[in-house]
């Protein structure tokens, strides 16, 4: 068997340059065949997913929107070390560090914390490298069904701490769950 005849897909056809017959030259048969193919698609199942009403099924190891975690006592984990920003291939993360005051011990776990923490969701590719880099277990990519809601302004895609930090109620609930286990 020569290399020309091997067909990996099983659909290889040799191109022939033979003269077309009269019937072929009329093209009508070819056109009818084409019409047959297109009409078959007319009755096929549609590939469209009607988005807001219908949601594509997610994989169990899906990486959704980020969340900045709180620990059992409801304190923010992040220490503004900047490793996540460094590891981010899309350069989506920025932050500003601040020093924890004496009366803020119940708010932040570490002595240094992120006073501003922003992720530009238009840049983020949801790779999860920030999560891997974090030494404080502070940032996680959740399995939220909604990645980034549509919006009119570019500014609205820069998510600050108000959108990223885990809500307090959730932290309380998590602690309760942990204690009951």
């Amino acid at each position: 068997m020569s290399i020309q005849e091997i067909s990996l897909s099983g659909r290889k056809k040799l191109v022939s340059n033979k003269e077309m017959t009269f019937l072929e030259k009329m093209y009508l048969i070819a056109i009818l065949k084409g019409l047959g193919i297109t009409i078959k698609h007319f009755f096929r199942k549609k590939a469209t997913i009607n988005y807001p009403e219908q949601v594509r099924e997610f994989s169990p190891v899906y990486r959704g929107r980020h969340m900045l975690k709180r620990d059992e006592q409801g304190r923010e984990n992040c220490t503004a070390c900047g490793l996540c920003a460094l590891s981010c291939p899309a350069e989506a993360i920025t932050m500003k560090a601040a020093e924890r005051k004496a009366d803020e011990k119940h708010l932040y776990r570490e002595e240094k914390y992120a006073s501003i923490y922003e992720i530009n969701m238009l840049r983020c590719i949801f790779c999860g490298l920030c999560e891997e880099a974090c030494p404080k277990d502070a940032i996680y990519l959740t399995i939220s069904k909604e990645l980034v809601p549509a919006n009119y302004d570019r500014e609205d895609f820069i998510f600050g701490k108000d959108k990223l930090v885990m809500p307090l109620e959730m932290a309380i609930k998590n602690t309760q769950l942990k204690n009951s286990n």
Partner: peptide, 13 residues
């Protein structure tokens, strides 16, 4: 609609 259906889409809805 016809264009969409022939291309396995659903068209304006």
């Amino acid at each position: 609609k016809v264009a969409a259906y022939l291309q396995d889409r659903v068209g304006p809805n």
